[in-house]
Structure formats: structure tokens, C-alpha cells
Design a protein around this nucleic acid. Structure first.
Lengths: 162, 162
DNA sequence: ATTGAAAGAGTCTCAGT
DNA sequence: ACTGAGACTCTTTCAAT
């Protein structure tokens, strides 16, 4: 099991380097990335194919500045449930609200933790008051509106041995 | 200012459709996306170029299943500061910790809100105890470990008028 | 603004090492 | 496994509408 990192395939340093590089910029050509990592473009291609087949790489996503699209409000919501057994049914209801972009079941103070993206405070208020409060099983919520995003970045990936 | 959505360029329904589609899958060819949206591949190209020049589209990112790379622990950290004026200096220190992938300055209970990705609980414990507690200005922290990610998705983008 | 076609660049396959 | 070259596909440019 040496060198294993929670997956079935064996990944070496080059695989991690490719992932790290392309997490930030997936548009770089295989030839250019190969030059940067001192292998041929063909090798990059083979590695990425392996990573896709293993399900580690799931494709690429457009990186969009949603503020410029009019989405000015990001907030985090701590959710208290009446009973923690209600998790699945409440999660199902929360998924119906498109403004909620992420939901985690967490340890600690709150039962669940959500992230919400809205165009403005009015829309946030509507979701919190008119939609969330109607869901059976939610005892109460605490909202943390983001006044500033200091940074958001990708995790620095390394082999287990490093 | 009609039709404006927080940016300088005017975006129509097609622009939003392109963004929505490619936020989920940036690998689709212009020809195929054009077919889906009933325009030519050339039109898709022109629109994306416009969006890039406006800074709305910032490129593409590889979508990676980090659990398979051995990163099993996601946690959220609510941070209490001794004085809220310490925000900038504390943010600078937090940015030095690569496991912290996101930091927001927030309203409500906490001064700041961080997200952290670690390989295991031991590494999380190390960051929380050995690294965070050493930063001057942090009064205390509350940690919420994610036991399950119910869902994570892109925001549904629409024009202001819709 | 949109289109379609030609030129240029990148991906993918495969035989050789 | 890695490489490099050829086949193929996609992006990019541009003249016409």
C-alpha cells in the first residue's frame, strides 16, 4: 500500500504536478505543460487520460466572476435542526432552492452548514425568511454575510509521502 | 442603465446561457454548444471572447475529486478576533497556511470565516492547534468538521430582468 | 451581430524505443 | 512508460451578409 493516497491508481509526483497546474489553469496545452514539467506533450496526455478514467479528473469548469453578473451577496448559514434525524429530508428541501450552492452536514454548534449566493440583500432576505423558515425540521438559522472575500484558492496537493 | 447587471458590458440571454452551460462543462466544443443554443460556433466564439475581455470569464479550472487524492477532511472555522481592526494582519497570516483555501470577513457571530482542507484529522489538529493559535489577534476559534457534503453546485445565473 | 469556410493550433492515436 | 509524427478535431480569423 505504499504511495497510496485514498484511490485505486498509483499516482506519482508528475500526476500531482499536472493536477496542481491545471487546477489553476486548465487551458494550457499539453505541449506547453510538458515543457514546464520536462516531459513530452504525449506523456501529459496519457497521464490526464489515466486520471480521467480513475474519476480523479472530472472535466473542466469555466471560472466566472459572478459579481460582474450581478451576484453581490455571498452568505453562510448555520442551521439548527429540531432532530438530527431530519437531515436528509431538510437537505432535500434545501436543494430545491437554487441560491443555495453548497450544503454540508457538520459537527459542532450547527447541524448543517449552507452557502448561499444572491443578487442582493432583498433576495437573501426572501430566501431566509420566506423559503427557509417554511421548511419543517429547521429550528432556527444563523446567517453570516460575507463583507469581503480575502482569498479563495485551490488546495496545494502533494503525495502522502511529502 | 437598463439591462445592466453590475458590469460594463451588456449581456443578453445567450451570454448567460453560454456561461451557465460552461460553468458545468467547459470542454464542450463551440460547434456543439452552438447547436444546443441554436447559433453557429462562430457566434459562441465571439461571445466568449467578449466575456473574457470584460473579465467576466477568467479561464477554466480542472475539476478534481480531491478525496481521491487523500484529502479527506473539510472543515469550516469561525474566528473571533480580539479587535476587528486586526482583520488585515490576521488575514495575511492565515494566507500563509496552504490548507486554508478560503477566508471571508463576515457579519454576525464571528469576525472571519475560513474553510480548510486537510488530509486527515491529525493534520487538521496540527493547523488548528499549532498554527492558528500562534497568530496574534485571534481570540478563539470554533471548528465545524464536514461529515458529509450533501451537494455543491454552481449558482443558476439569470439576467436581472428574469 | 452572425455566419461559414480556410488557416492555424491542439488533441489523440500509434508504432518505435 | 515515454516519445514523436501523422490523423483528426477544435479554435481562430476573416470576408460576406
Amino acid at each position: 500500500m505504499q504511495g497510496q493516497t485514498g484511490t485505486k491508481v498509483n499516482l506519482d509526483k508528475l500526476d500531482f504536478q499536472i493536477i496542481q497546474e491545471m487546477m489553476g489553469n486548465a487551458e494550457i496545452s499539453y505541449a506547453d505543460l510538458g515543457k514546464k514539467l520536462f516531459v513530452s506533450g504525449g506523456t501529459i496526455h496519457v497521464r490526464i487520460k489515466k486520471l480521467e478514467e480513475a474519476g480523479i479528473v472530472r472535466g473542466t469548469k469555466l471560472n466566472v466572476d459572478i459579481k460582474q453578473l450581478g451576484y453581490d451577496v455571498i452568505a453562510f448559514i448555520g442551521i439548527f435542526l429540531e432532530k438530527s434525524s431530519l437531515y436528509d429530508t431538510v437537505a432535500k428541501e434545501l436543494k430545491k432552492i437554487p441560491e443555495i450552492v453548497r450544503l454540508n452536514y457538520t459537527t459542532g454548534n450547527y447541524s448543517m452548514f449552507a452557502e448561499i449566493i444572491c443578487k442582493n440583500i432583498q433576495q437573501l432576505r426572501f430566501v431566509l425568511h420566506d423559503e427557509l423558515q417554511k421548511i419543517k425540521g429547521i429550528e432556527r438559522t444563523e446567517t453570516f454575510i460575507s463583507l469581503e472575500e480575502s482569498f479563495i484558492r485551490d488546495v496545494r496537493v502533494t503525495k502522502a509521502s511529502e
